[in-house]
Amino acid sequence: MNQYVFVQSEAFESIEVLDLDPHVTPATLFDRCLSLVGHDTAYGLYLEDRDDVEGLDALAEIAAGMRLHLHRRRHLSVTVCYAGHQIQRDFRPGTTIRRVKRWAARLLSISVSDAAELMLQVEGSDQRPDEDIHIGTLTQDCGLKFDLVPSPRINGAQPDEAVLRRHLSEGRFIAGCQRRWTYHTLEWPHLFVSITARDGRRVGLKIDCSGYPNQPPTAVPWDQARRQPLSQNAWPKGGRVSLVFNPRWQSGTALYLPCDRTAIAGHGNWLHEHPSLIWDPKRGITQYLEAVHEVLQSHELIDEAA
């Protein structure tokens, strides 16, 4: 059985997933990773949260689920500011936000309970990276600067957001990022993704996840480049596809799917007609994305170029 390895990089919009032979060697893995950046030998490959110089070469075997990082710099200078204090040290680009935060909290003598209410924010922006993000994805330069700020997830009492973020870090979602969808960002309560259609186009979605996971999500087609609803003449079309992506239904504010919060209202018959598509909180957001992806693989889909 093949195994997945997850790769982050400054060069990627989202996590890349490699499907590997279980007996792959470190040299072959390195070559596969370099192929993601056009075999640019300026890139080095780093293990997540490891500082050792040997890195991949020191491994006896490649473990399933291993998390790696491709970057053109061996070290990044990281500065963290908090309450008038400023600390700095170098990290490998494969270092997670989680590890940087733990280091900062320890050095700044922040208690565990207080640290739980704080998160790192990129200085001069409102960007607050998830804790499993590698710092190398945030810059092509040699340094990063963060402010340690109060977490809205704690003071805002939004456990639904915390559950969604956990689901976004799980293997099923990340594996889907390989070919089926692209994760852009989470701006609570909205998740922004693009689903890959049969003809190769990427159909953007803005997904409202309020009440997650007990309440089903609901989505609207989205123009990620312009940060606005997708023009209705650009919606996917053709047979069943047009039933799900129907701009005339609910004024184009939702998808006509049994797992959609808006669509399920008034469709009690779907409970026995489409049981596999009824929202299941245990399957979570991946269920919704899989349902949309399946629709966009239909041979009834009219090619975008047609």
Rank of each mutant, 00 (worst) to 15 (best):
E48Q: 14
C33R: 02
H23N: 15
R153N: 03
N269D: 15
E300M: 06
E48C: 11
G143L: 09
P129V: 04
K282Q: 14
P275Y: 08
G176H: 03
D114G: 01
P152H: 08
E273N: 09
D132N: 04
S194L: 09
T25R: 15
W249A: 13
R179F: 08
R98P: 00
Q232M: 11
D223F: 06
L76A: 07
D260E: 14
F91G: 00
D208T: 09
L205H: 03
R67T: 06
P150F: 10
G176V: 05
T185D: 10
E16K: 12
V37P: 08
A263G: 12
Q224W: 05
L289W: 08
Y288A: 10
Y4D: 11
H167M: 10
R248G: 10
N246A: 12
R261A: 15
G200P: 04
Q228F: 04
C81G: 00
Q224S: 01
P281T: 12
S109L: 12
Q121P: 03
R99H: 05
H134G: 06
Q297E: 12
L108Q: 01
Y4M: 11
R261S: 14
V17E: 07
E273L: 15
P258H: 04
F6C: 05
T182I: 14
L59C: 08
N2C: 08
L230K: 00
E170Y: 03
E48H: 00
L56F: 07
H85S: 06
Q121W: 03
R248S: 15
L186W: 03
Q3F: 07
H75P: 00
G204R: 01
N269L: 12
L20N: 04
R67M: 09
D199N: 07
E54I: 04
R226E: 14
R32Y: 14
A162D: 06
I207K: 07
P150S: 02
L257V: 11
R98Q: 06
P236K: 02
K282G: 05
I278C: 15
P258G: 11
